[in-house]
Design a protein around this nucleic acid. Structure first.
Lengths: 337, 337
DNA sequence: CTGAAAGCGCTTACAG
DNA sequence: CTGAAAGCGCTTACAG
């Protein structure tokens, strides 16, 4: 925008373009005095370098992409906060892309990014991600990609996530200890390792306490809030209805609250609820919601730091980092006796 | 990243670079047959154009910036959702910058953006924005800037916001009608027109119902949640303490709930509460929170649309658009008799 | 309909 | 320490 470029600046100073460029980049080739003059003039004329010229020449975009399923979700909002904190400190720009839980959008986004618009990608997969050729291509081209939260299974991917199995196990254990015998696991569609691992933890806890597994209590939800509310209502009305609910994601817990309200079931008296969630207002809900809370801000920070290490090639050889940050279980009234 | 460029593509096809470029941009100068061949080869080799070369040449970044105070806030998360929806549809990229309510960060961000990295800026001002020379410079250079939610006073700025005065008035009226006589307005620091207008609505409602204004009931909060809780607690303990609270932003309502819990005041029995807020869980809180809810998603969409009209020069002359979208007042238990 | 050439605004290896 | 020149990968006015 600012029409001041190196050419104009160099004319103003009576120097060559190359000297001005070097002075601005603090090159050792330039005398201290010249640097000072250049810097002052740049300031005076409010010179802003053209980022595209620089990126084109240096083959570095100074940008990263964050690809997430949605943003109106406390987890992702907090994670982005962590990512931005690290990126802004590094002087990097952050491009955000929403996939709306749609693998087509996700693929086309990833495809676009191969043009070199960014130096690296942080991605939390959409729930219906099957086998993304685009992603595989991107990675096998040596492009830095870090997965966070919703991560794939394959061993070759650098990931930052929370201990999903452990969270699922402990949450289930909590419900069992308050007397629940029929615990419903609310899962989202798709087969991301995140959901799968949470479910494995749930199943392992049932085994550990000799509670028989019941496939009817594993309830698959969709991306539509209204529809989910109906699904949950139906589950809560069936014969042998659940006396405890473990929700794998925040929004299903909210749908559960609404569903219970509609069919007059009291939480925790009639059904106990616990959910993976970063809801700030968990303790203000009626009743307050027990949560397994992933440290979203830290996960974002960690993922971004890892990505920058990859971008800056500070990784040791081909080692693939798999960072796991523990979630915290906070017992509140929704799962009390 | 992908090392396939126009040169490589043209060699592969036995065509000149210019013809390939034109074919890819669907130029009328190129025959249908050649276009087909080019497109197929581009697909086959997974050609992705280098965005920087294109941006440099065309002086168009195909990107916009969103500058907001924070992201872990339902309002901004929803607004970004609206912005992204419009931008992705237009094939634009979205860069997000957080100012953390800090005018220095805001200024340095704006300064950076003058380099031409984006074609336009959507900004919601940080609370301590005084007189931003950077912003004035940007606008007077003819750079497209649209303000949303937290907007400045000056008539020359295109803005998309909610009817703050009206919201403040109606919320106050609601509290008065349920019997409140001492209504505290919780305001944030700084003098953005948003907060000011909400307060003017509040004051106008007091006047309208012949309730004397009391400066002690206008309580200035900070950006620190813990500190705010103390400030609110103190206000609730003073002689002639408030019997109603109008919170100008969501997070102060949450602090109010916590403050009341700590000093054993029952909402709405001892004090009634209403707040500007986009909290999804407002109706699940204990008690459910009465809100004036700005349509954040629509505001984001509208602001982005306006920005694109400016970028595409589809504006009529110098007309400055000031779009106002009404908020909805939803009465819930926190402000019931 | 196709192609040669200039140029967007930088950076950097090289010469002096 | 300074500068001339090439080139990053595109686009587009122009010539044929």
């Amino acid at each position: 925008m600012s029409s001041i470029n190196l050419k104009r600046l160099s004319q103003e100073l009576g120097l060559s373009i190359s000297s001005v460029s070097k002075a601005l980049r603090d090159s050792y080739e330039i005398s201290a005095e010249t640097k000072k003059r250049v810097l002052e003039m740049a300031e005076k004329l409010n010179y802003q370098p053209n980022p595209f010229a620089s990126s084109l020449r240096r083959k570095k975009s100074q940008s990263i992409a964050v690809v997430i399923p949605e943003i109106a979700n406390n987890y992702f909002a907090l994670a982005i906060n962590g990512i931005q904190t690290v990126a802004q400190q590094k002087g990097y720009h952050v491009l955000t892309y929403l996939t709306h839980e749609n693998s087509k959008d996700q693929d086309s986004t990833i495809k676009h990014l191969q043009g070199g618009r960014v130096d690296g990608v942080l991605i939390s997969l959409c729930s219906d991600t099957a086998n993304s050729q685009q992603l595989t291509d991107l990675q096998s081209a040596g492009f830095p990609v870090v997965f966070f939260d919703r991560i794939p299974d394959s061993p070759g991917c650098p990931t930052v996530s929370t201990d999903d199995f452990d969270g699922g196990f402990k949450a289930t254990e909590q419900l069992i200890k308050t007397g629940c015998k029929k615990i419903a696991y609310l899962r989202v569609a798709g087969y991301l390792s995140t959901t799968e691992n949470r479910m494995r933890g749930y199943l392992a806890a049932l085994d550990r306490y000799n509670i028989p597994q019941n496939p009817k209590l594993i309830i698959e939800c969709s991306n539509d809030d209204e529809q989910n509310q109906e699904i949950i209502k139906k589950a809560l009305k069936m014969r042998g209805r659940p006396d405890g609910i473990l929700s794998s994601v925040e929004k299903l817990a909210i749908s559960t609250y609404y569903a219970c309200g509609e069919i007059n079931l009291k939480i925790p008296r009639d059904v106990k609820v616990i959910s993976f969630s970063c809801l700030r207002t968990a303790s203000l809900l009626s009743p307050s919601l027990s949560t397994i809370t992933p440290p979203a801000f830290e996960i974002g920070k960690e993922a971004a730091s890892l990505l920058f290490r990859m971008i800056e090639k500070k990784m040791f050889g081909n080692r693939v980092e798999k960072t796991v940050i523990k979630s915290v279980l906070i017992e509140r009234n929704s799962s009390r006796k």
